[in-house]
Design a protein around this nucleic acid. Structure first.
Lengths: 150, 150
DNA sequence: CAGATTTATATCGCACACGATTTAATAGCG
DNA sequence: CGCTATTAAATCGTGTGCGATATAAATCTG
């Protein structure tokens, strides 16, 4: 029979059969591949993601960055302070609503985008996948993420 | 033309088009879904992965666990000490080679496997995917990880 | 418009995660 | 055999991440 069996409990409990572990370890692998490239920019991998979000849309609140990156203020605030200390961004309370903090790129932060432009290609190369394939896999994982967060 | 275009640099620099970000955020999403289930077992998500590795094969060295989990001793040592303090594992220097530390499940640690047996099904449900589909996606990501670490 | 409620960030404590280094033990070699 | 090189864990410093809580500002309600 070519019917897809329900996996046995033993098979289910093997680490290498865990989708979550594949993602967990692939995430670490990405961090490692990014490291040498991001060292040039003096950025950590999460800091790079914040910069990408700001390059895409400047002048965002902490909350809006958090929504896009799926991060809490308790994670972002210290990160943003480091990026500010490095001179890449500024953090200013919104005049109209003092609860909010507006995060903006500095000149240096904007200029960094050019230096970072080579990064995506380097990463794409390391995946050993075609652009179309990367896009498809990315979409599948984004859908999975949405299911998990439902 | 139905030819697959090479993505423009602008498209490449959008966060939502990053495969790495999909994986990064899906990993966080998994952590969140696991949290309430693992709270019952008094385990964090990384601790759970260590326990899964030990349930699959007991009596491993720190190094062998590190290879399977893609983690360094600097990460594992403190984690294992916590699991030991909780009474789930024991850490003993190997008599034949005192450099190595053998990690073994305690009775309590073995017994925990039964309590944890419901977890994978709960997670699988949260993915909203069929077992076969989960397996395929898992394999694709494992292949990606291998490429990245090459 | 005063007091209660909600919202936006920040702070704190804890647990990863890693690179660089240290420590201790084994293996290799003349 | 003794000395060096290698190997396995542990330690240290830094940077995420998050839950719980605190703080302060805006909003809502009577």
């Amino acid at each position: 029979m070519a019917k897809a069996d329900t996996p046995s409990p033993e098979e289910l409990m093997k680490l290498d059969n865990f989708l979550c572990f594949a993602i967990y370890s692939a995430n670490h692998a990405f961090t490692r591949v990014y490291k040498p490239l991001l060292d040039e920019l003096d950025l950590t991998y999460p800091q790079y993601l914040v910069m990408v979000a700001l390059w895409e849309k400047d002048d965002q609140t902490v909350g809006s960055l958090g929504e896009k990156l799926f991060l809490e203020s308790s994670t972002l605030t210290p990160m943003l302070k480091r990026l500010e200390a490095m001179g890449y961004i500024s953090r200013v309370r919104d005049r109209a609503d003092e609860r909010q903090v507006r995060v903006r790129l500095t000149e240096t932060g904007q200029a960094l985008k050019a230096k970072a432009s080579a990064v995506p290609l380097g990463i794409a190369g390391a995946t050993g996948m075609e652009p179309a394939e990367i896009g498809r896999l990315k979409q599948e994982i984004a859908t999975l993420r949405a299911s998990l967060l439902r």
